[in-house]
Every structure is written in structure tokens, then in C-alpha cells.
Design a protein around this nucleic acid. Structure first.
Lengths: 161, 161
DNA sequence: GAAATTTCGCTAACCAACTTAGTAAGATCC
DNA sequence: GGATCTTACTAAGTTGGTTAGCGAAATTTC
């Protein structure tokens, strides 16, 4: 074996990277975002569905929605959302019901199976996170909360810009 | 108009959700993960590439890698990675170079254009985040760091589990 | 040091899940 | 009450992943 991962095979191949010298917490945030992105994919595949379907279940678990509103939240087209709902229904994770007041609309409701699917996979994590939070003093919790909402704001700005 | 988002059209449609009563900071974390997931998609489309390509550029900006190692980090197959590198090269964002010591290997190196692409889009966010962090006292920063690494650990456990 | 095995990067064929485009039905607005 | 908008859907096309498998180079085994 030449080298495990030879990142510096020669000077010529190693370009001058204008490095951030990111602080530890910025690094931790990066890492958090990375696993945060990997996690739904892994969990979804484990549960035999696509990432989008898992997210749809998450949203629908909080409140019943129509396909169009679901599409907006998932940042996909309503055509795609239609297919997502089809697949959820096919797997018994959701049901379509007619909207009582509006003949055009459909209300997508999560079934117990769907809710179990979402909660079952994510509960251990939420438990750990709740514990982690429990280990903080109220003051510390306030600091964390301020940081998190600030980070969300920074990212949202870029999202809109 | 019947209602903006009619979430409770009737009692029959509103299923009994076994609600978390998530704490504020857990909610903030959820939100952070959500925008954290939305952001690469939006930025990538803006830059005219796929999410995977953007992530590839991010990894390659830190260090030059071969397609197989890149694939491992992106959690895709080496076949897919081959295509990712093809597209990056086609857009002038990366170059393939032969590995000096190992005739089988290729080293993928980011070009200036590729680096500009990544940094240009993400810099404003990192700047905001750096500012946010600057507004913390050293003690607070330590708290945040501890929380973030703890959260990463909790999620990583689920990832491996 | 030759043969067997592994690793790397790639191509080909296939497939899942998105997009765009467009339709019909019902609601809303002068 | 006719024009316009909204909702949900279908059909066709595109993108970007997968599995399978190949040749070349490196590594291990005998």
C-alpha cells in the first residue's frame, strides 16, 4: 500500500488553500450540519423510503396538509408532491381525505403506521438531545438558544438573498 | 377563500398527535437542521450545479482526493462519484491529475474557479456566523461548543446504530 | 518472482424521483 | 355569471443516483 489517503502526493498537487482557520465551535457547527444532512438519508433508507417521504411524514405528523402546501414546505413542485403522497399512501403511512369545505382540496393525514415509522427511528436521538439539554443550567440553555436562533437567522438570510 | 391553511377543517381530520412539547432550544435545533438542509440545495442551484457537486467542491477545497475517497465522503458509489468529477471538470471547477506514486489513482484538484464558486456563495454566511460567535464571551463559547459536539455525538450514534 | 487477490477509476444499463407542461374541477372576484 | 385563480393530478422528459462488471495497477501469498 502506498499510503492510506495520500493528500500531499507532491507539492504540485497541493494547491494553496485560502484556509479558514475556523474556530472550534464553527467547526462543530459544520459537523452538525453535515451529520444533520446525512441522517435523514440514512434513516429514510433504513425505513425503506426516500428522504423526501421521511420529511413529508415529519411535516404531516405535526399537522395535516394538502399536497400543494406540502410541496411548498418540501421545496418541490406540486407534481412531485403528488407522487410523494402516492407513495406514502401505498405504504400505508398516510391517507387522502376530501376537504370538508373545499371540493378541490385533499387533506393528507398520517396513519399510525406512518407516525410510528417517523417517531420510532428518531426517538432515540431526541431522547439523547433532550438529555443533553437537561445537562445545561438555565443560563447555559439561554446561551445555546441564542446561538442557535442566531445561526438560523444567518443561514436564512443567505437563503433569501 | 376558505382559509389560508386550514389545518383543522374538522375534528375528524385532526388526528391526535402524540406531541413532543419540545423545548425552545430543541425547536431551534430542528430549525437549524432544516435550513441547514435547504441551504446547500438552494446555493447549489444558484451556482448551477447539483447539491452533490457543491459538497464535492467543499471537500475538495479542503484537500485533493481521488474519486473513490470522495465517494465515501459523499456517501455515494464510486460510479456516481466518477460522474460528479466529470461534471466538475466539464464546468472547469476541478481537474484530474495522475497520482505520482500509484498508477491506478487519480487526484482531483479544485481549480480557482471552483474555489471561488464555493467560497463566494458561502462566505457571507460564515462571516455572519463568525460575528455571532464573536458576540459570545469565552465561557459562553465553551457552552455552545459543548452543546454542539454533544448534539453531533447524539446524531452520530443514531447514524451508526 | 509468479499467481491470486484487491483496489481504483471507469463504462453501460437501469431506475427512482424530480422537472416542465398542461388538464379538469372547484372557488373566488369583479 | 364569466374571467381568473387555485388545487390536484397525469404525462413526458431530465437528472443523478444504483448495480454489475471490466481493465490496469498494486499488493499479498505461496
Amino acid at each position: 500500500m502506498v499510503s492510506e489517503i495520500s493528500t500531499q502526493p507532491s507539492e504540485a498537487l497541493q494547491t494553496a488553500v485560502p484556509r479558514w482557520r475556523p474556530s472550534r465551535s464553527l467547526e462543530a457547527l459544520q459537523e452538525l450540519l453535515d451529520v444533520g444532512e446525512a441522517l435523514p438519508e440514512v434513516v429514510a433508507r433504513r425505513a425503506g423510503m426516500s428522504t423526501t417521504e421521511l420529511h413529508a411524514l415529519r411535516h404531516l405528523s405535526a399537522e395535516a396538509l394538502g399536497p400543494v402546501e406540502l410541496a411548498r414546505r418540501l421545496r418541490i413542485t406540486s407534481a412531485a408532491s403528488s407522487g410523494v403522497v402516492d407513495r406514502l399512501v401505498a405504504h400505508g403511512h398516510a391517507e387522502r381525505r376530501p376537504h370538508p369545505d373545499d371540493g378541490r382540496r385533499t387533506v393528507v393525514v398520517v396513519t399510525d403506521s406512518g407516525r410510528a415509522e417517523v417517531i420510532g427511528w428518531l426517538r432515540p436521538m431526541f431522547q439523547s438531545l433532550a438529555e443533553l439539554e437537561g445537562s445545561l443550567t438555565p443560563d447555559e440553555r439561554a446561551v445555546v438558544e441564542r446561538y442557535l436562533t442566531g445561526a438560523v437567522e444567518a443561514m436564512r438570510t443567505l437563503l433569501r438573498g
